[in-house]
């Protein structure tokens, strides 16, 4: 076709357009590159990475046994010899408990959101893409869950199931499904009406192929961004459940649980008592800022 020079093949003869862009780069490669230019997001990703790393490596990283009590060394201040971050009301090492607590807190923060992302996202994409009666049924069921405030719902579910970590996880998952479903549904129903989906249908593509190739890819960014902001909510809700005694049962280290049991010591060692709260704050904030950075990196026009 190279002899077709005049008039037809000239779409390329534009200044600045002669940059070869022949090889394909996946959308995610572009997202990675844009993230690479965003130091703030990278820093907070590092914070999250450190927290997750510490949680995973708790047995090796933690300086003390998080359950070893000492009636002599109770409520020591931050900076105490041998107890870098002090000790709690039973004399347990705070640093070790925070590191071990990260295990449960991060698990409670991330797992419910992940599971809800898969279930809610799936339901939302189906409801949004199919429309009609399917949409009606799915979304009305979600509306029932929506009718309750999320804290109340989480408390009610885990209370009914009898507390404990398992029921806490289940409660949080159920709380997050409707909102993730709603976000996925909105995105999918917008995409359903676009010409490129019609073009895919016109090429004879079956529904599942259209959903996998064209819908999921475009629904994922908004849903992922929303989900990453939910992780901080989940950590806080989990902390709240523990605080109420519905989450993790006492000896286990958990930031919410620690916050709850330390409140008696607040007048003696305010800083030590605030530490679990500080940890929750830092991790939640990091997830929020990373989700913000992700939103910018996933914007195709940036």
């Amino acid at each position: 076709m190279s002899e077709m020079t005049t008039n037809h093949a000239i779409a390329a003869q534009i200044p600045g357009e002669d940059v070869p862009r022949g090889e394909r780069r996946s959308y995610w490669a572009n997202v990675r590159e844009r993230l690479g230019h965003d130091p703030v997001t990278l820093f907070f990703m590092g914070v999250i990475g450190a927290a997750v790393g510490a949680a995973l490596l708790a047995p090796w990283v933690a300086p003390h046994d998080p359950y070893a009590t000492s009636m002599l060394a109770r409520l020591r201040p931050v900076g105490t010899e041998g107890h870098l971050l002090g000790t709690d009301e039973l004399g347990r090492d705070m640093l070790s408990r925070l590191i071990w607590g990260a295990r449960t807190s991060l698990l409670m923060g991330i797992l419910p959101v992940l599971v809800a992302l898969v279930i809610g996202g799936f339901l939302g994409v189906i409801a949004g893409f199919m429309g009609g009666a399917v949409n009606m049924v799915v979304m009305r069921i979600m509306d029932v869950f929506y009718a309750f405030p999320s804290v109340l719902l989480a408390v009610a579910i885990s209370g009914t199931l009898g507390g404990g970590m398992g029921s806490g996880l289940l409660a949080l998952t159920l709380v997050f499904i409707p909102s993730l479903c709603r976000v996925a549904e909105t995105a999918a129903s917008q995409i359903r009406g676009l010409d490129f989906v019609d073009a895919a249908r016109a090429s004879g593509a079956p529904v599942y192929s259209i959903i996998v190739t064209h819908v999921v890819g475009n629904v994922l960014p908004p849903v992922l961004i929303y989900a990453s902001s939910l992780i901080s909510v989940s950590i806080l809700l989990a902390a709240g459940l523990s605080f109420l005694g519905l989450g993790v049962s006492p000896p286990t280290a958990d930031w919410g649980q620690m916050l709850s049991s330390l409140r008696q010591g607040i007048y003696m060692q305010p800083l030590v008592c605030a530490l679990p709260g500080l940890a929750i704050l830092i991790v939640s904030l990091s997830f929020n800022l990373v989700s913000d950075g992700l939103r910018q990196a996933m914007d195709i026009k940036s």
Partner: peptide, 29 residues
């Protein structure tokens, strides 16, 4: 029988390189 849509922001999948958009139909078949 195929259709060419009015040019607009929505006629091509924004998250797909154009080569893949063109290759999609034959892949489906």
């Amino acid at each position: 029988m195929q259709m060419v849509f009015q040019d607009s922001a929505s006629s091509l999948n924004p998250r797909m390189p154009i080569e893949e958009s063109v290759a999609y139909g034959p892949r489906v078949h």
